[in-house]
Design a protein around this nucleic acid. Structure first.
Length: 328
DNA sequence: AAGGCGGGGAC
DNA sequence: GTCCCAGCCTT
């Protein structure tokens, strides 16, 4: 049988009885040790959508308070669709990646206008919404609608790789398509919700990136990476894993400048400042510059203009040439 | 395939 | 200081 989807790549397949044991051990561990997260206590697809957008590249602990605040302010998808964009952006600070706020509201508006206010339940429809990629589509389909679909975030990628393939560094490393194919192959029938949540909890609590606590892991007996570490007596593994990753990064020639000199930093400063202004009030670029950058001079005007133009392009500010800038 | 996009917490 | 995080979009 041949399929055309990108996830049809083949990867090593664990033996069925071995896989069943991993399912049992991890699901049992999850039933016992799961984190009490607020979006696990609801079946409201809108609330789950909000949580998943917030959780993109953002740790659980930082999302929890903002999740409650956001839902209290915009309780339904209709409320969010009807709100001023400036209010949505303001509520978002300081989660970061502020385009997520604009896109989340655009999704709400599209759901109201095109889907009768009901958030889609299929991967295909969810993927049509800007801001929802394969992970988030899978998460919403699975967690809000109990669809039996695989989904891969950074935790699940790491856990599945270590469990079924071995250490991620330096080799081998699965592609996105291969990882998704593996996730689909090991999905326990009928238990996708608990399984996906369990993989993420394991990745967050035990099988962490830099210093996994293998001695507390419920599935270490079946873990390929654990066998590698054991064979070489590499416990505790923290130093080893950090070193392996560093070597891999050096090879890729990774470089960086101080964050507080980056455009990304100043974009954040601008949005945070505009958020403190009275509604509708604008600021000229000449006023804005010194307030976000102490060393600002007139010579920086073209730079600031470029920055503001990009913010406007991203829907994060409203910029009128003569009157200045404000939240949209 | 690579680069842009935030910010706070862990170490 | 560096690395990390329930990623996604554009080029």
């Amino acid at each position: 049988m041949r399929r055309s989807s990108p996830s049809s790549s083949t990867v090593a397949q664990p033996a069925p009885e071995q896989l069943a044991r991993v399912h049992h051990l991890l699901l049992e561990w999850y039933a016992r040790e799961q984190r009490p997260l607020p979006w696990r206590a609801t079946s409201d697809p809108y609330a789950i959508l909000v949580s998943e957008i917030m959780l993109q590249q953002t740790q659980v602990e930082r999302v929890i308070p903002k999740y409650h605040e956001f839902l209290s302010r915009f309780p339904t998808v209709a409320d969010l669709a009807a709100a001023p964009t400036a209010a949505v952006i303001s509520t978002w600070v300081p989660l970061g990646y502020n385009q997520r706020a604009v896109r989340l509201q655009a999704i709400a508006r599209q759901v109201v206008s095109d889907y009768q206010g009901r958030i889609p339940d299929s991967l295909e429809e969810l993927l049509k919404l800007k801001g929802i990629g394969r992970y988030t589509a899978g998460a919403i389909a699975c967690f809000a609608y109990r669809r039996q679909v695989a989904t891969v975030d950074t935790n699940i990628r790491r856990v599945l790789h270590r469990l079924f393939i071995g250490l991620e560094h330096p080799e081998p490393r699965l592609s996105d398509a291969e990882t998704l194919a593996l996730a689909e192959q090991v999905l326990p029938p009928g238990r996708a919700y608990e399984w996906n949540q369990a993989l993420m909890d394991l990745g967050a609590m035990i099988c962490t990136s830099a210093s996994p606590q293998c001695e507390r892991c419920p599935v270490c007996e079946s873990c390929a990476a654990y066998r590698e570490l054991s064979a070489q007596s590499l416990f505790p593994s923290g130093t080893v894993l950090r070193t392996l990753r560093k070597v891999a990064e050096k090879k890729s020639g990774y470089q960086t400048q101080p964050f507080t000199q980056s455009d990304r930093y100043f974009r954040g400063r601008i949005v945070a400042l505009l958020r403190t202004l009275p509604p509708e009030q604008r600021l000229s670029l000449a006023e804005l510059g010194p307030r976000i950058k102490p060393s600002y001079t007139e010579a920086d005007l073209p730079w600031l203009q470029r920055l503001v133009s990009r913010l406007a392009r991203d829907g994060l500010v409203d910029y009128q040439e003569e009157e200045g800038v404000r939240l949209p």
